[in-house]
Amino acid sequence: MSHVFLYALVGVGLFTLGLYALIVHPHLLRKILAINVMGSGVFLMLVALGRRTPGTLPDPVPHAMAITGIVVAISATALALALMLRVQVETGRAELPEEPLE
């Protein structure tokens, strides 16, 4: 048990936290923030588990995947924000309609 597992568990926590916020909040900007937090949790878990190498050097493959993922995340965020603004122009609100629970 090393600090690697601590960070991996923090990643799990961030993923769960983001998923909760994604489901609960109706506002689209909050949903976008929540997805970003979820993504950060996934990257943290990936890189932390890639650090379990016996030597001093970490595994570079998860690092490369995390860098790629970060750039994809920002482009997806930009597209999501543009969609959100479009939703607001069309409906007047940037929130999903609150459905009554059946």
Partner: peptide
């Protein structure tokens, strides 16, 4: 699942 992984794995390094 995370904690049940082996604590040392060389991966592709």
């Amino acid at each position: 699942a995370v904690l049940s992984l082996p604590s040392s794995a060389p991966g592709l390094s």
